[in-house]
């Protein structure tokens, strides 16, 4: 992996002048993905914050081929691009040596929920596409509504905090696991660890098959924290093991934890700076923190078990 100093001499194929919020994690992730892509990137983008802010006619922040079609179908659109590459290559209309990195970059709403079927189809058919979900855990584009990726207890505009209900009632869907069940190369990554994220992107795009990377993407507006803290919050998410960094190889069988915190911090340290969890810290609501912590521990322990079992492979 190149050093940051070396990387900084490469052209960034996603420019400023986009209209994402100040402190948005999405462009940071996009930058890292495009810097890591080993071949000519082609980006498919479902409808999401990134899309409506980066390609606003007649401006486009992209310097690579870019296609937005609809909200729920980016994986299928990318499947079509992959099919076109195969077909045109077979016909000799594309140079055999010319390689492409077909990358979907979508939010969690378009990935966990409405785009779930298309994602599953793409992974099952084995298209050579990398699907990256920048996972900010809610429908930020439409104004912070809960999604399948929203954490337990979080406030959103469709999971309010009141007398009868304290934020989202369910724990979040573990999409990386589901993706792994398809036999794809799967990874969990976070934008604060650019080296880990970029390594995974490069690996995925060199993998002869489908891949899925879930990237933690703290959203200042939706999570309610100051916009300068985006990277810091992400770091806390990983340090408390809410968002562990791992990858799944060998068609879903080999689980590797890429980062084990030296001191696993309590989830409260991660939750505290986020306004969406403010009610966790009110008197009488301690059970929310406990339940959140318990679920994080359950998943982390299970992940460790899988990783341990994988070591025997």
């Amino acid at each position: 992996m190149a050093s940051l100093r070396e990387l900084s001499q490469k052209e960034v194929l996603f420019t400023g002048g986009h209209r994402l919020c100040a402190g948005c994690p999405a462009p940071i992730i996009v930058k890292q993905i495009l810097l890591a892509a080993p071949h000519a990137p082609i980006v498919v983008n479902p409808t999401c914050c990134l899309e409506i802010s980066s390609a606003v006619f007649p401006y486009t922040a992209w310097k690579v081929p870019y296609y937005h079609n609809a909200f729920e179908n980016a994986a299928a659109v990318a499947s079509g691009i992959d099919a076109a590459i195969n077909a045109l290559r077979r016909r000799g209309k594309l140079d055999e040596s010319k390689k492409f990195s077909v990358i979907v970059i979508g939010g969690d709403g378009g990935t966990y929920d409405i785009g779930f079927q298309a994602l599953s189809g793409m992974l099952e058919r084995g298209h050579r596409v990398l699907y990256v979900c920048y996972d900010n855990g809610a429908y930020m584009n439409t104004g912070i509504q809960r999604s399948g990726a929203t954490p337990y207890g979080a406030w959103t505009t469709t999971s309010h905090v009141g007398e009868a209900q304290k934020g989202k009632q369910q724990h979040r869907k573990d999409l990386a696991w589901i993706a792994a069940a398809h036999g794809a190369y799967v990874a969990n990554a976070s934008l604060h660890n650019w080296r880990d994220l970029m390594r995974k992107v490069e690996k995925a795009l060199n993998y002869d098959g489908p891949s899925f990377i879930n990237v933690q993407a703290p959203c200042p507006r939706g999570w309610r924290f100051p916009e300068s803290k985006t990277v810091e919050i992400a770091r806390l998410g990983t340090e408390c093991c809410f968002y562990p960094l791992y990858e799944v190889e060998d068609k879903g069988r080999k689980w590797i934890i890429n980062y084990v915190p030296k001191n696993k911090i309590p989830v409260a340290e991660y939750l505290k700076p986020q306004g969406r969890f403010a009610h966790f810290f009110q008197k009488g609501n301690e059970y929310l923190i406990e339940e959140f912590q318990a679920e994080v521990d359950r998943r982390w322990e299970h992940l460790q078990r899988l990783a341990k079992m994988s070591e025997e492979l």
């Binding site: 420019t15 002048g17 209209r19 401006y59 486009t60 922040a61 992209w62 081929p65 870019y66």
Partner: peptide, 15 residues
Amino acid sequence: LVSEGSTDYHTGSWR
């Protein structure tokens, strides 16, 4: 559009 980046759209005024 031709993908040429949007650095000519100035967001400095947001600051």
